[in-house]
Structure formats: structure tokens, C-alpha cells
Nucleic acid binder design. Structure first.
Ligand code: FES
Ligand code: FES
Lengths: 158, 158
DNA sequence: TCAATAGTTGACTATTTTACTCGGATATTG
DNA sequence: CAATATCCGAGTAAAATAGTCAACTATTGA
């Protein structure tokens, strides 16, 4: 269960733009050198980000990309959704009535994975680009965790 | 970002055994027919579950596997860890000091992914096999979610 | 004791997904 | 018109996942 480069690079790039929020467009070339992501790959990603209305583009010399909305109005989930990174914890299709073929259409573990997926989505919905740039993340997760659990958590997240 | 068959099948099988908790060992053949998972694949998984001390085995006719501990003492994270399914949200190695090479060793998005990984781990640590069998999951997630967000969450979890 | 059952083990292959590249087109600036 | 930078479709390479196979060992019961 891991996050791939697609979602990772998309968020990294958006953070990069949010930092250079000088009303000047940021070129992919600049982002590529700063983040060490290949230019063609970035082009592919920004195509989707633009089509989803998260960024606006300026062509020609001095051009690049700008955030389409203020950074406190762009959620991490918006970015991931734009580049087709979804949380896929359950196996059954959301439409089709029957899933894992056991226990009359819904397997016993369905609710477990569904709950986990929602948990993740809830988190990604609650964090905005601005939160990331300003480092407001500790407050959004992990309040009072027992010392005993801390150890186990570190094993799970690897 | 999806859950593969390895972790899914491991948990499904463990739930299956927990249901038939008649002090009788459950054979992989029975699990295979009920869950429609191939026998050789199950063998591979139960090797790891046994070596991690989650199940005990009984060889010969009438044999099979039993839970090594009561189901309320087996967490979902224990099962996933046993079959080498880890949460891998950050890109940087946990040991090595430098990660994504930007912002002096820790990239701006590191804390974001780290927080998300911990969020997931916390959830998986809080749910036991017994919880799944008895359907105690709604209480563990999603308390008061705005109607507006509900819609978006469904898009993200797909 | 012998045959059937069922776990034990390591290695191996197929499939799918992910990551990334390439070539060329179009628009804008100076 | 030349340089810059976004646009766009397709195509390939690498990696991870999923699943298979053959052979072995222990146990039970007829
Ligand atoms: S995951 Fe939905 S029915 Fe099994
Ligand atoms: S994810 Fe850890 S430094 Fe980028």
C-alpha cells in the first residue's frame, strides 16, 4: 500500500508553485530543476491539473503555470483526484451490487476497507495546500497516542 | 493508492478462521473454496502468518490452522505486517538522513505524507479481528461528516 | 502398513501497473 | 523569425504484484 510518483509529484509541484506565489507564472523547467522531476513527466501531469481547473497556463516565453485558486482553497484530495490517484481499498465496484462473492454480495471485510478508505479521504479533504506550505499538519493528526502504540505505528508505516 | 490481494486475502482468511472458532482447525482447502482464493497462494500467505505467530498449524487429516490468540487480541495491522504489507507514504528511507533532496533533506510534503501514513496506521491498530467479525466499524470511523464533504469523499475512495 | 489428507518449502513465471520517454505541434514574446 | 514554453498522443521500459508448480513431511485412520 504505497503512494506512487504520480500523486507525489503532483502535490510537490503544486506546493512549489504555491511557494512562489508572486503572481508570476512558474515554468515547468524551473519546477523540474528544483524538484528533480523530468520535464516530459511534469508536462503530462500539468495537462491533467489544468484540465481539472486547478492551475491556469500562460504560453510563450516567461510563461508557465499559476494556481487557479488561492492555496487555502485547494485541497490535497483535489490534486490527487486531478491526476487520477484514487483510494482503492475495497475490491468491489461501487456500482455493481455484488462484490467479493461471499456473504451475499458484501464480504465480511468490506466495511473494514471502506472505513479505512473514508478515513484517508477525510484526512486528504481536510488538508489544503496552504496547510502544507505553512507546516500546519501536526495539529491535523495524532493527538494523544500511547507510547506503546507509537512503536507499532512506526513498523506499519515503514 | 490501492490495497493489493496479499493483504486483502490475508485478512479475509483470518476473518474466515475467526468465524469458525470451534476449536477445530480450519483447512486451507475449506478457506479456498469459500473465498475463491487459490490454494497455492493461501499456502504462501499462511506460511508467513504462522511464522509471525498469528496462527498455529495442525498437520495431517483433519488438520488446518487455528488462531494463536483470541480474536480480540489480533489487530488488523498485525495481519498486514505479517504478510509484508506496509504503509509506504513517504519516499525517503526511515534511516537515511536525506530524503527527497529538497529543503535540506526533508521535502515540504514529507510531513503531509507522514501524517497520512500515521493516520492509517492508527486506524489499523485500533481495529481487531473481533471488531470485524462483529461488525463494529462504523463507530471507529466517520462521526460527523458534513453532507457537502460526503460527496467528495466518495469520489476520492472510488 | 499403507493410502489419503493437509501443511511445508523454494523457486519460478505471467500479468498488470507504474513510471517515464519521444516526436512533433501550437502559441507567445521580443 | 527565432527562442521559449505549453500542448498532445502514443509508445516503451521497468518494477511490483499475483499466482503457479513440483516435491517433501507429518499425521490420521482403515
Ligand atoms: S471488498 Fe466490497 S465486497 Fe469484498
Ligand atoms: S517524503 Fe520524506 S523527504 Fe520527501
Amino acid at each position: 500500500m504505497k503512494l506512487g510518483t504520480k500523486g507525489r509529484y503532483a502535490v510537490m509541484s503544486m506546493v512549489d508553485i504555491a511557494c512562489h506565489d508572486d503572481k508570476e507564472a512558474v515554468s515547468l523547467n524551473d519546477i523540474a530543476t528544483r524538484t528533480e522531476i523530468s520535464l516530459p513527466y511534469l508536462e503530462q501531469l500539468f495537462m491533467k491539473l489544468r484540465k481539472s481547473g486547478l492551475v491556469t497556463s500562460v504560453r510563450g516565453p516567461g510563461g508557465g503555470y499559476k494556481l487557479a485558486r488561492p492555496s487555502n482553497n485547494i485541497r490535497i484530495s483535489d490534486i490527487l483526484l486531478a491526476v487520477d490517484v484514487q483510494i482503492h481499498t475495497t475490491r468491489c465496484e461501487p456500482n455493481s451490487a455484488m462484490g467479493c462473492r461471499i456473504n451475499h454480495g458484501r464480504c465480511l471485510t468490506h466495511d473494514l476497507w471502506d472505513a479505512m478508505g473514508r478515513q484517508m479521504a477525510l484526512f486528504l479533504n481536510s488538508v489544503t495546500l496552504e496547510d502544507v506550505v505553512q507546516g500546519r499538519l501536526i495539529e491535523k493528526s495524532m493527538h494523544h497516542v500511547k507510547k506503546e502504540e507509537q512503536e507499532n505505528i512506526l513498523k506499519v508505516v515503514s
